[in-house]
Write a protein that binds this DNA or RNA. Structure first.
Lengths: 336, 336
DNA sequence: ACGCTCAATTTGAACGCTCAAATTAGCCGC
DNA sequence: GCGGCTAATTTGAGCGTTCAAATTGAGCGT
């Protein structure tokens, strides 16, 4: 017969103390006399005792579980989100939390998920990604007093919650200034259609850098859908225009890859004949040598957890919300 | 004061029955008289009662939590694993399970994670991916009698556990036959260095198809590292050889992308001047029109959960293990 | 030597659920 | 109308933990 898993009671008897003292050794050591503490700790080590989370959760209503929704593949997220998820998992682990996954379709479905998750798993908190204008999810969570943090600013709304985001405008400004420093006079911006918070933000960063340097922007700003093909077309159109640009600042790596493809197809060498910069520092960027802006996912994940722990600690009182804006890093490669 | 969350007791009193009857309505309805059942169900619906998982877990030792390790980014997995993770999350959700994430470095670290996860969260089971030869993880889990299933065959070892995998050989054979049907006489295979289970398996599929059709294989088989650049080089080398191939069957989309890049760089049109087929049906493949073998991730996820549920149901007795091999699907695009 | 305080430890109850065993109700045959 | 049977429901206990309150013990001033 394999021996039963040790419980508080087991340990307590072996160390000749009460259950509660063992519990205190683990959670409130200052209440226990050093001599007793050491004795108990020895027994814990020897028996390999580990508390049963279910029992703790039942009693304390804290599960140390954080839920995160993952969007349908192809739709949102992609590589960046996966890196974020990984960083979040790793750092949560270090802090004694775990990440519980759930799938998120549209906002309505996601909210329905919150409901069942909350009632079934006593979740401590949520992490949301890909925030957008008029995000009904944040409203729901706030109303139900569920602690949460978003990776992404509450575009268009007022921030009544904690969030962490990457300062796209600032990053694009820095990248554009790098292009200006390299002597470029006509710098194009390949961005998404107006209306997406992050996209508009990044475009603003390009515009600001150009205007500050007295460079033109009119006729140099494209609005294209996400993806390689649209990026390629936009690049081609600009190259065929009366006064073609010499550099392409792109809102994403996919679009930058499109520009890169078009350039090489014309026999032009990216970085020599024309510059290209992307956004997100994807694996593909590294492979082909595309200069790109890297989002500090690990720092974002850490900041998200900081914010959550702050919220969880101050439960009850009116919590103060963190708003944190981190800067992306320009990763220089051959394309610019 | 917001009302307390309803418990079994609350519902029981409101429906004028005992706790246990309410519990039975939920878990063993056949034991309850229809009239009673309806009455209880009405109260449940009205109060919005939901069982507290922690209490159930404490009592039943079943958490309905399945853990899955995610490899360090860039290292293992990539896009395929993300799609699998998504499918797994979605289908687990439908069956009343949730996926708990943890990071996995090397096997030793992963095993350490198992230990703490098991003792802290009362996990029901594990899902492992990227199995390799001499996998110490499966041995550990078997020894500790933890239910688990692997996505990937136990390469080189004897299967003492449940697994689900995709029949790479069979898929590559089908793809190669497609090329043969299109009239190709010299079909190259760009594969990984010998020793990786999946890689060798896929190469064998190509060899078999060629030999069955009386086509040559010698001098047509390259062994290259994963990645676009190595694939491109290998393609170039073969094109420059005395008797260049007219088709490239590739072990992965990355390598196929390399071949595709080399072809276009030489002014050759993939699909017209030479054929290319990849493996995994990545997003990039869809974008550039690369024919590729798609792994049925959703089916794999479903099969993994089937296997796990079978294991969990038959706990105690000597469990029979499932071994399931699914066929990939050839997605035809312009490149072949 | 007495009560008083503070530190260290113990005790009983409770968290919400399900298991096993006990109870009650309904029905049949003789 | 009474033992015997099955179906439906209830009761009591316990899962392993932590909270709140109770208890013990030591130290100290008077």
């Amino acid at each position: 017969m394999g021996q039963q898993r040790p419980t508080l009671e087991t340990v307590a008897r072996a160390a000749d103390v009460s259950r509660q003292t063992v519990s205190n050794v683990l959670h409130a050591p200052h209440l226990v006399r050093p001599a007793t503490r050491e004795r108990v700790e020895a027994v814990i080590a020897q028996t390999g005792y580990r508390p049963v989370k279910a029992a703790q959760t039942l009693r304390t209503r804290r599960s140390h579980l954080i839920a995160m929704g993952i969007p349908n593949p192809g739709e949102g997220g992609g590589e960046l989100l996966d890196r974020f998820l990984h960083a979040l998992t790793e750092q949560a682990q270090q802090r004694g939390y775990r990440i519980l996954l759930f799938t998120a379709g549209d906002d309505t479905a996601e909210i329905a998920s919150y409901d069942s998750l909350l009632s079934e798993y006593d979740l401590d908190a949520f992490v949301l990604t890909s925030t957008h204008t008029a995000d009904s999810r944040t409203a729901w969570l706030t109303r139900h007093r569920v602690p949460f943090v978003t990776f992404g600013r509450p575009w268009g709304g007022v921030a009544r919650h904690s969030w962490v985001d990457v300062d796209g405008a600032c990053g694009v400004t820095a990248a554009t200034e790098h292009l200006i420093g390299a002597g470029h006079q006509r710098i194009a911006f390949l961005g998404w259609p107006e209306g997406s918070g992050a996209g508009d933000d990044r475009r603003a960063g390009w515009e600001q850098a150009c205007q500050a340097a007295g460079l033109p922007v009119s006729g140099l700003s494209s609005q294209v859908e996400e993806g390689l093909a649209p990026g390629r077309q936009a690049c081609a159109a600009l190259l065929d225009s009366a006064r073609p640009p010499t550099a392409f600042m792109c809102v994403s790596d996919s679009i930058a890859l499109g520009a890169w493809t078009e350039l090489t197809a014309r026999g032009l060498v990216p970085g020599t004949d024309a510059a290209v910069i992307g956004f997100d520092d994807s694996a593909a960027a590294a492979v082909i040598g595309l200069t790109s802006l890297a989002q500090p996912v690990a720092a974002v994940a850490g900041a998200c957890l900081d914010a959550l722990q702050k919220l969880l600690a101050s439960s009850g009182g009116r919590p103060r919300h963190d708003r944190l804006l981190l800067e992306p890093r320009l990763v220089l490669r051959s394309s610019a």
